[in-house]
Nucleic acid binder design. Structure first.
Lengths: 342, 342
DNA sequence: CCCAAAATTCAAAGCGCTTTGGATTTCCTT
DNA sequence: AAGGAAATCCAAAGCGCTTTGAATTTTGGG
């Protein structure tokens, strides 16, 4: 069943039927109802390829998945994608997922856009002075950045969480609890969010004339293993930290293991705050000692970004260009007063 | 730059250029080279929407993501998707990702196929007597199942791992090591792979006249938390198991925590074998006590399935309809002889 | 050197939808 | 009841590609 058949069935022209379906005003209410009824009865579905060809819109949003053969995939990506999907499906949008080596990002993005098979691009894993932004601005294809770059003007559409603020708040709480020796288990150092989180911690410490020692900062992929190793290294220091911040609950997982192994008690010997992306796989409240966290749902961010991207493509509504989400600081049992100095 | 312009530039007809590009035999080698050169120079890219319309192929494979709003997403899904993506991108295939409540699966699949926007469907999270299979067989759209159902003839295309065999092998090793009391921390009981894994264990035990007690089997979503709870419950039993099998390294994570908390030593007090989907986030060799595993790469399965699906759509090559992958049993430190009875 | 067969190339007809530019009706106002 | 605006509806022209059916050029054997 196609448009032609449907219109013949109704004794109308394709034009009218098409307009009735797409909500154009110049069609009689009664006629429209007739068309809608026929659609329901026949189960007619417009052919997307034809629609795309006719409108010039691809009906899909492109994303570069930094996970080419041999490169580890990231749990956080899957969760974010679920959010994108929740929203995209409502508008019958596809994804064109393009795996790429992190180093080919710029070229991959350009190719994806040039292919004409995407209406918009989604950018993530922002770095300092990320070259993709200038590149995308030079093209006319809409895009949104998840996160923000650093060191270049922020006159591009983005959605980010207040990383600096989150880690400032977390560190501040710990200073108020009397902690003096801090450590940070962070994401990769080339990613902008890592830089901001570190800055947040440094700022909070500075207010108490404290500093974050270099040997108390670890940058790595956010996996269980790296969390464990980093924490173990910290605990072997001359003066080990009593307050530790983690950029992910996945990292915290490893960190907790190292702490337990060292025979220390979380919440008394050592306090821990992690950033929680609300991964269903790993809930901070279910840790042996429930984790104090800075929380912001990655999935919600995905939904919102898809919403904005699609709105821009279809020019439905005008949504804000810049969004900076505050995180919630949720106190659980993993934070407590600093242990007495010995 | 479109086909028309390109062909004018070359002084050829659209027909010839199109054929040259699509590898048809009836075109002069020299002419073809000229076309290819021109493509390189001009950066011409065929419009996918037009191709799709003309060929009637959608250029995309559909998948239902069992993760509608409010339902937890599954880590394993992301890893599998990465595999699909690795392969799909080579042929410029999209995904149409359709979130759905697990209960709507059948309807969602049907709708996805009826929309005509996918050339093939991918089915996963198989259940016993899964109704989706009969439904898909009644349609003409190609599909592949990841996993296998139970209780219905297996005359449909699938790729599965030998779950029964994997858990049989694992349990057998443990019996050989002298273990007598077993436990199984499994996936959801309505999923076919869980049923098979359990069967594998039961079979191995039967050979030594051992049984798997009901209170020593746990079925749940494969998250850290459930692993922890299940293990904790087992350890509180009158006669706790000395050999435990886990359906995922994610579950093992929680299980290990419970064991540590109970003050027991892995590999001596209690032996543990987990199934390893090769999630980059969580490597069994990096556990505090490296984990003995049954291994099969989920990502590789994704790649293979995409390959088969695409081959079938394009009718490139004939790949086997049924594949049953053996798993590797990799022995590490988490398994050891059964402790002496006290 | 001629002619049929093989090798190349081409013109044109769709694929199913949107949209432009008009045509036709209907509705008001005077 | 006439005239013009508003409301509806329609025919036809694409969108850019593939493919059918036929035309044209080459090639090879007699």
């Amino acid at each position: 069943m196609n448009l032609k058949q449907l219109s013949q069935l109704l004794g109308l022209s394709q034009t009218t039927v098409s307009r009735a379906l797409n909500g154009y005003p110049e069609v009689n209410a009664e006629t429209r109802q007739r068309v809608l009824d026929a659609v329901r009865d026949t189960g007619y579905r417009p052919n997307r390829a034809a629609q795309r060809l006719a409108t010039g819109r691809a009906g899909s949003i492109g994303l570069v998945m930094p996970t080419a053969d041999g490169i580890e995939s990231d749990v956080h990506f899957g969760e974010f994608l679920a959010g994108l999907g929740d929203e995209a499906v409502k508008h019958d949008f596809h994804f064109v997922i393009n795996p790429s080596h992190p180093e080919d990002e710029v070229a991959t993005c350009r190719r994806l856009v040039a292919s004409g098979n995407v209406d918009a691009l989604f950018l993530a894993y922002m770095r300092e002075k990320d070259p993709r932004i200038a590149m995308m601005k030079s093209l006319k294809t809409p895009f949104i950045v998840h996160g923000r770059s650093i060191g270049i003007p922020d006159d591009y559409p983005y959605l980010d969480i207040d990383n600096t603020g989150a880690f400032y708040d977390a560190a501040r709480l710990l200073t108020q609890l009397g902690h003096r020796r801090f450590a940070l288990i962070n994401g990769p150092d080339y990613l902008a969010f890592s830089v901001r989180r570190r800055k947040g911690v440094v700022r909070a410490l500075a207010e108490h004339d404290l500093t974050l020692r270099d040997e108390c900062v670890n940058h790595a992929q956010m996996t269980d293993e790296h969390g464990f190793r980093a924490m173990r290294a910290f605990l072997r220091l001359e003066a080990p930290p009593t307050a530790v911040l983690c950029s992910s609950t996945v990292l915290a997982l490893g960190a907790v293991r190292a702490i337990n192994q060292a025979g220390l008690k979380i919440g008394s010997d050592i306090s821990l705050i992690a950033h929680d992306d609300v991964l269903p796989m790993l809930k901070p409240e279910n840790f042996m000692v429930p984790l104090t966290t800075t929380r912001s749902s990655l999935r919600a961010a995905g939904q919102r970004i898809a919403r904005r991207l699609i709105a821009q493509i279809l020019q439905l509504e005008t949504l804000p260009q810049h969004e900076l989400w505050k995180t919630d600081l949720i106190v659980r049992a993993s934070t407590g007063p600093a242990p007495a100095e010995r």
